[in-house]
Amino acid sequence: MQVSTQNRNKGAVISVSGDIDLYTSPDLRKEIAKLAKKKKNPLVVDLEQVDYMDSSGVATLVEGLQLTGRYEGSFRVASLNDGVREVFELARLDKVFDVYDNLDQALAGF
């Protein structure tokens, strides 16, 4: 899994590629926590290049939601493929996140 971050005004976009699983999700968590500490708003995680994500990935994104919630920041998830969307649905957390079809939509208004 590769993680790259771009700052966008007061916000940031984390672009992830590869698989998010038990062994790689701690790296994503670290990046989210680092940006949340800087109170980035919005904090967008772009999953366009992610083919597979397991429940540790969903749990990591839930933590992102919790961390940004502490400073009333907006945590957004963009570009889910069908497989990744199914994992959110499996965890019954698909309605909890602000999910956007693509990065442009996720950044609109910021």
Binding site: L22, S25, P26, R29, S55, S56, A59, R92
Partner: peptide, 23 residues
């Protein structure tokens, strides 16, 4: 199993546990 075999943070493990119990 998550505590024994992964390097996930305890906070992540707690969320995963709740997800699995909810399932």
């Amino acid at each position: 199993p998550l505590r024994e075999h992964t390097r996930l943070e305890e906070s992540t493990i707690q969320i995963m546990t709740r997800i699995k119990l909810d399932m």
